[in-house]
Design a protein around this nucleic acid. Structure first.
Lengths: 140, 140
DNA sequence: ATTTGTGCAAATCGTTTGCATCTGA
DNA sequence: TCAGATGCAAACGATTTGCACAAAT
């Protein structure tokens, strides 16, 4: 078989195992879609469409389960920019986003580029978990 | 009557008028709740509960309408921190937020305190509309 | 064999909408 | 008067859940 067909990327299977997730057919297929080509931003629905188009008929419920499991396992990060849609990002490094309100698209901004200074001390009893910067864009 | 009872703050009526909104019973009552005591963060539901408790039986639909009208009129700003809930903030100045994931609470960080540097040039055809910084907190 | 994942359809949650009724200028 | 607001209930879209079935170890 040509590598394209066998391209189930064995390292993905390992990656799932390390994350404590059984490498099931669906999870491997979704991991393959998500992690095979650079960083990506998806919604549950867009990933579902993509999987179905790719001949992997997963149900939407499984997509949601999988996205959350991957997020818990730190394979994905969740990006909250829009109250109506949840985005997942395959880039789990410290980084930020441009969000274009006109077409609801996300663009990564690598962490090194942006510096946030002057964050006040958090209230007693809490610690900073993460700092999200969203640069909202409009067409002009 | 004591000032507490007459506290329909006539300036609120003016404020609504200036925003092009008819000062109806409900709008004035909600504006009164929102703008009478320092800056506040509310959700549609929390404001609804509060209004009802205060003896102003508005419907939830009207709460949503009003929150959006106030937002369009720049009397409120919308804060997107949580995919499941929409928050509205009576502080419409440039500022940022602490968001405590444990109890879903918001705390303002005044704009002067935080500086964001190194934002890359936005893609051709778009301009920066707003930069949101969310400092996510966890109990430790 | 046992545990864990999956699919489906129904349930849920926050939010929006349609429409008849009311109200402020 | 009459455009604009409101309330209600139904519609909605995204997400979640319950449960019977299927697959992985």
């Amino acid at each position: 078989m040509s590598p394209e067909h066998t391209e189930t990327a064995p390292n993905l299977v390992e990656r799932l195992r390390h994350a404590g997730l059984r490498p099931t057919r669906q999870r491997v297929a979704l991991a393959n879609i998500l992690f095979s080509s650079g960083h990506r931003h998806v919604t549950a629905e867009s990933l579902h469409d993509e999987a179905v188009s790719a001949g992997v008929p997963v149900s939407l419920a499984t997509i949601y389960n999988t996205l959350h499991q991957f997020t818990d396992a730190k394979l994905l990060s969740q990006v909250v920019v829009d109250a109506t849609r949840t985005y997942f990002d395959t880039n789990t490094n410290d980084h930020h986003h441009f969000y274009c309100e006109d077409d609801s698209s996300l663009i990564d901004i690598e962490g090194e580029h942006i510096a946030v200074s002057g964050v006040p001390t958090p209230p007693k009893g809490s610690k900073v978990d993460r700092v999200d910067v969203i640069v909202r864009l409009r067409r002009h």
